[in-house]
C-alpha cells in the first residue's frame, strides 16, 4: 500500500517536472552551441536529443529508460545522469543529516531550558530567540554566519567540502562517514570545519520550530497526573521533565520534524550554492541555468524519492517510540 502511494507520488512528480521544464522558455540546444550557429545546426542537434518529438513521446522515451535504470545523459556535462547524481548525493545527505542533528540538539536543549524555567522571563527570552531564528530564512543565516565566522572571526571554511591540500583516497563519496569509520580525525575536523556553517544555517530555523513545538507539548504534559504522581515520589523538576514528560511530549514534535526535514533538504539547494558545497543542490542550480533537462529531471526525482523515504522513516520511528501503536 505504502509502496503503491510512493510510486504514484513519484510518477506525478515526474510528469509535472517533465512538462514544466519543457514549457518554460529557454532552449537547451541553443545554450550548447556557440553564437552564430545556423538554424539547421540547431534543428539537427534537437533531433539528436529527441526534442523535435512531442512532449508525450519524449516522456514515454524517458520513462522507459528510467524503468531500465537509465536516466539519460546530461546535456551540459555529457555524462550519465544517474552517475552524476549518485556521486553528488552523499555530500547532500551528509550535510542534511548534520543539519538535522544540530537542529534537534539546539531545539531540544532550548525546549528543555524553556520548560525548566517556564512562565517567567527566561521563557520569554527563549520565545523571542526562537521567533527571531525562525523569521530569518536559512540563506540569510548563511550570510550572517559567513560574516561572523568567515570574515570577522575566520575560524571556519566558507566554501567547498574538503581542503584540496588534504589528499585522501575515499572509496565512497560519504567523506564524513568514511573519515569517522576510518578514525581519520584530521579529515573529520577539516570536513566539519567546511560543513559547520552551511549545516548551521540550515539548522537554525528548524531548531526554532522544534524548540517552540516541543516546549509547548512539554508544558502541556507537565500538568498531567503521572507527572504530578512522580513529583510526590520525590523526583525533582529536571528528572520529571526529562524522564516523565519528554518521552510522551516528543511524539507530536517527531511528526513535524519529518515534514520539516524535507524542507531542510530543499533548503540545501541555495545553501550549497552559497557555500560552494559540491552537493546535489549546487548541481541542481547549474542544471537549471544550463537548461540541462535530463539532469533536472534526475535530481528532482531523487529529491522526491528522498522525501518519501524520510516520511516513511518518521512513521516507523513514531511506532517504535509510541508503545500504544507497537502492537497495532
Amino acid at each position: 500500500m505504502r509502496l503503491l502511494t510512493t510510486v504514484i507520488t513519484l510518477f506525478g512528480v515526474a510528469v509535472i517536472v517533465f512538462v514544466v521544464i519543457r514549457v518554460v522558455p529557454g532552449n537547451p540546444i541553443a545554450m550548447m552551441l556557440p553564437p552564430g550557429a545556423t538554424d539547421a545546426d540547431i534543428a539537427r542537434l534537437q533531433a539528436q536529443y529527441g526534442f523535435d518529438k512531442s512532449i508525450f513521446d519524449q516522456f514515454l522515451i524517458w520513462l522507459s529508460g528510467v524503468l531500465q535504470g537509465d536516466f539519460g545523459t546530461s546535456i551540459s556535462l555529457r555524462q550519465p545522469v544517474s552517475r552524476l547524481v549518485l556521486n553528488r548525493l552523499p555530500a547532500t545527505l551528509e550535510l542534511s543529516i548534520m543539519a538535522l542533528l544540530m537542529a534537534v540538539l539546539m531545539g531540544g536543549a532550548l525546549a528543555l531550558f524553556g520548560t525548566r524555567f517556564r512562565d517567567g522571563k527566561t521563557e520569554g527570552v527563549v520565545d523571542v530567540t526562537a521567533g527571531m531564528a525562525l523569521s530569518i530564512p536559512d540563506f540569510l543565516w548563511g550570510l550572517v554566519l559567513i560574516l561572523l565566522f568567515g570574515v570577522l572571526w575566520p575560524v571556519f571554511h566558507i566554501s567547498g567540502r574538503i581542503s584540496p591540500a588534504l589528499n585522501v583516497d575515499f572509496t565512497t563519496n560519504f567523506y564524513l562517514f568514511e573519515a569517522i569509520a576510518r578514525l581519520r580525525f584530521d579529515v573529520m575536523a577539516d570536513l566539519a570545519a567546511h560543513m559547520f556553517m552551511p549545516a548551521l544555517a540550515l539548522a537554525i530555523p528548524l531548531a526554532a520550530i522544534i524548540s517552540q513545538l516541543l516546549k509547548q507539548s512539554l508544558k502541556e504534559t507537565m500538568h498531567l497526573d503521572y507527572v504530578t504522581l512522580a513529583r510526590t515520589k520525590g523526583y525533582g523538576e529536571n528528572h520529571v521533565i526529562t524522564r516523565e514528560a519528554l518521552p510522551n511530549a516528543i511524539l507530536p514534535t517527531l511528526t513535524l520534524v519529518g515534514v520539516q526535514f524535507t524542507f531542510l533538504i530543499g533548503g540545501t539547494v541555495i545553501i550549497e550554492r552559497l557555500f560552494s558545497y559540491e552537493g546535489l543542490g549546487n548541481m541542481a542550480i547549474d542544471a537549471v541555468i544550463n537548461r540541462d533537462l535530463p539532469l533536472i529531471q534526475g535530481i528532482v526525482i531523487l529529491f522526491a524519492l528522498l522525501f518519501t523515504i524520510v516520511n516513511l522513516a518518521v512513521d516507523m520511528l513514531y511506532v517504535v517510540l509510541n508503545p500504544r501503536l507497537r502492537h497495532a
Binding site: 497526573d225 503521572y226 504530578t228 504522581l229 512522580a230 516523565e244 510522551n248 517510540l321 508503545p323 500504544r324
Partner: peptide, 12 residues
C-alpha cells in the same frame, strides 16, 4: 490519585 487512566505514564 483520582484517575487511574491518566496517572500512569503511557510510555513506560
Amino acid at each position: 490519585p483520582q484517575d487511574p487512566l491518566t496517572a500512569l505514564n503511557p510510555s513506560k
